Amino acid sequence: MATADDFKLIRDIHSTGGRRQVFGSREQKPFEDLVDLGWLKRSSVDSRATHYQITERGTSAAL
Rank of each mutant, 00 (worst) to 15 (best):
M1H: 13
M1W: 11
A2M: 05
A2K: 04
A2W: 06
A2T: 05
A2N: 04
A2S: 05
A2P: 15
T3Y: 05
T3E: 04
T3C: 07
T3M: 05
T3N: 08
A4L: 12
A4C: 15
A4Y: 10
A4P: 13
D5W: 07
D5P: 06
D5Y: 08
D5Q: 10
D6Q: 13
D6R: 06
D6I: 05
F7R: 05
F7A: 03
F7N: 03
K8N: 09
K8T: 09
K8F: 09
K8D: 09
K8C: 12
L9R: 05
L9K: 03
L9E: 02
L9F: 03
L9H: 03
L9P: 01
L9D: 01
L9V: 03
I10H: 00
I10W: 01
I10N: 01
I10C: 02
I10E: 01
I10G: 00
I10P: 00
I10L: 06
R11L: 12
R11C: 12
R11S: 07
R11A: 09
R11V: 12
R11K: 11
D12L: 12
D12G: 05
D12E: 14
I13S: 00
I13F: 03
I13R: 00
I13G: 00
I13T: 01
H14S: 06
H14Y: 14
H14T: 03
H14G: 03
H14L: 12
H14P: 00
S15F: 12
S15I: 11
T16E: 10
T16I: 06
T16Q: 10
T16P: 01
G17F: 04
G17T: 04
G18N: 03
G18I: 02
R19Q: 13
R19K: 12
R20S: 06
R20V: 15
R20C: 14
R20K: 08
Q21T: 15
Q21M: 13
Q21G: 07
Q21R: 12
V22L: 04
V22T: 04
V22G: 04
V22Q: 03
F23S: 15
F23P: 12
F23L: 14
F23E: 14
G24T: 07
G24S: 08
G24C: 11
S25C: 12
R26K: 15
R26P: 11
R26G: 14
R26A: 15
R26W: 14
R26Q: 15
R26T: 15
R26F: 13
E27G: 10
E27L: 09
E27I: 06
E27W: 09
E27D: 13
E27Q: 10
Q28L: 11
Q28F: 06
Q28V: 08
K29L: 07
K29S: 07
P30T: 05
F31D: 00
F31T: 02
F31Q: 01
F31L: 06
E32R: 07
E32W: 05
E32P: 01
E32Q: 09
E32D: 11
E32C: 06
D33F: 11
D33C: 13
D33G: 09
D33T: 14
D33S: 13
L34K: 00
L34E: 00
L34W: 00
L34Q: 01
L34T: 00
L34G: 01
V35P: 00
D36V: 14
D36S: 13
D36P: 02
D36C: 12
D36N: 13
D36F: 11
L37Q: 03
L37I: 06
L37R: 06
G38V: 02
G38F: 03
G38T: 03
G38P: 00
W39N: 00
W39C: 02
L40N: 00
L40Q: 00
L40W: 00
L40S: 00
L40V: 05
L40P: 01
K41Q: 11
K41A: 11
K41M: 14
K41R: 12
R42M: 08
R42E: 04
R42H: 06
S43E: 15
S43R: 08
S44I: 13
S44L: 13
S44N: 10
S44F: 15
S44P: 07
S44C: 15
D46I: 06
S47N: 11
S47K: 10
S47F: 09
S47Q: 11
R48V: 14
R48K: 13
R48F: 14
A49M: 12
A49H: 09
A49P: 06
T50V: 14
T50W: 07
H51N: 12
H51F: 13
H51E: 15
H51D: 12
Y52W: 03
Q53I: 13
Q53M: 11
Q53G: 04
Q53E: 15
Q53R: 07
I54L: 05
I54H: 01
I54C: 02
I54F: 01
I54A: 02
I54W: 00
T55D: 02
T55Y: 01
T55Q: 02
E56V: 09
E56C: 10
E56H: 08
R57N: 11
R57T: 14
R57Y: 10
G58H: 01
G58T: 00
G58I: 00
G58F: 00
G58M: 00
G58P: 00
T59F: 06
T59P: 01
S60F: 12
S60D: 12
S60L: 15
S60P: 02
A61T: 04
A61V: 09
A61Y: 04
A61W: 04
A62F: 03
A62M: 03
L63N: 07
L63K: 08
L63A: 06
L63R: 07
